[in-house]
Amino acid sequence: MANNSSHPAALYKLRKVTRISALVILLLVVVGFFMPADYRVERSVVINAPRDVVYQDILQGDRLPDWMFVQDGKVASFGGVLGKGDSVALVYDKTADQGLLSVIESSESVIRFDVRPKPKVNLVHNKIVLQENEGSTVVKWTIEGNLSAGLLSPYLAMFANNIAGSNFERSLQKLKEQVELLH
């Protein structure tokens, strides 16, 4: 009979845990409605080369695909140099979907481009600022966007700096190595 008396206590504990879990989930959903789904990520690197040399390499067709990291894909190869109004495809290893990188502005001091990683995915606004600094160049890359992943969007935006930041650090390091090796 001792076993029968422990069932109500176990059920009561299970009910209590279930209710607390439901309240925590409900609280997270409600808080998520009031959090922004916008994100901003910024990284920089110093490249030991003059600004005009760095600028020439950044959007060049035989070099851009080598330094710009694209998760599970790459920038499509192309000839020439991308300029204002030009676009290039982003191709992926495991899907036929393609993204698009479109140059909005291009000068020796500022490069702006938008990336649509895949169809029906929000645009990611990119800005690369090139600042000369005693024979070297500080390259500062900033991305901004808005996530539309439902209830998870605000929480993903909160961690975007960590999630995307490592990809940009990898890209900037590859750009640095590439420019310094070639010049």
Rank of each mutant, 00 (worst) to 15 (best):
Asp93His: 06
Leu151Thr: 05
Ala2Thr: 14
Gln56Asn: 12
Gly165Cys: 04
Trp141Pro: 08
Gly135Ala: 11
Ile163Phe: 11
Asp52Met: 08
Asp62Leu: 08
Leu130Ile: 12
Asp66Arg: 14
Val88Thr: 05
Asn3Phe: 14
Leu59Val: 06
Asp57Ser: 04
Arg15Ile: 15
Asn4Thr: 07
Ala149Arg: 09
Asn133Val: 15
Gly83Met: 07
Glu180His: 02
Asn3Arg: 10
Asp114Trp: 01
Glu169Asp: 09
Arg15Thr: 12
Lys16Met: 15
Tyr39Gly: 00
Pro65Leu: 14
Lys127Glu: 05
Val103Trp: 02
Met1Arg: 10
Asn4Ser: 09
Gln56Leu: 06
Ala89His: 06
Ser136Trp: 02
Leu26Thr: 08
Trp141Tyr: 14
Val129Ala: 02
Asp57Gly: 04
Trp141Arg: 12
Leu90Ala: 03
Ala37Ile: 08
Arg40Ala: 11
Ile111His: 01
Ser148His: 10
Met1Pro: 07
Leu82Arg: 00
Ser44Cys: 04
Asp38Gln: 13
Val17Trp: 15
Arg43Val: 03
Arg19Tyr: 10
Trp67Arg: 04
Phe78His: 04
Gly99Trp: 09
Arg19Met: 14
Gly80Glu: 08
Leu123Glu: 04
Gln178Phe: 02
Glu105Met: 13
Asn167Arg: 07
Asp86Tyr: 03
Tyr55Trp: 04
Ile58Leu: 07
Gly73Asp: 07
Ala160Asn: 06
Val46Thr: 15
Pro8Lys: 11
Thr137Arg: 01
Phe33Cys: 14
Arg63Asn: 03
Tyr155Gln: 10
Tyr55Arg: 02
Phe159Asp: 07
Ala22Pro: 00
Asp114His: 05
Glu169Ala: 08
Asn133Glu: 15
Leu130Ser: 02
Arg19Thr: 12
Lys13His: 11
Arg51Phe: 02
Leu23Phe: 12
Asp114Ile: 09
Ser107Gln: 07
Asp114Thr: 12
Gln56Lys: 13
Leu123Asp: 04
Gly85Lys: 10
Ala164Gln: 09
Arg63Ala: 06
Lys120Ala: 15
Ile58Ser: 00
Asp52Gly: 02
Val81Cys: 02
Trp67Gly: 00
Pro119Val: 11
Leu23Trp: 11
Ala149Met: 14
Glu132Asn: 13
Lys174Leu: 13
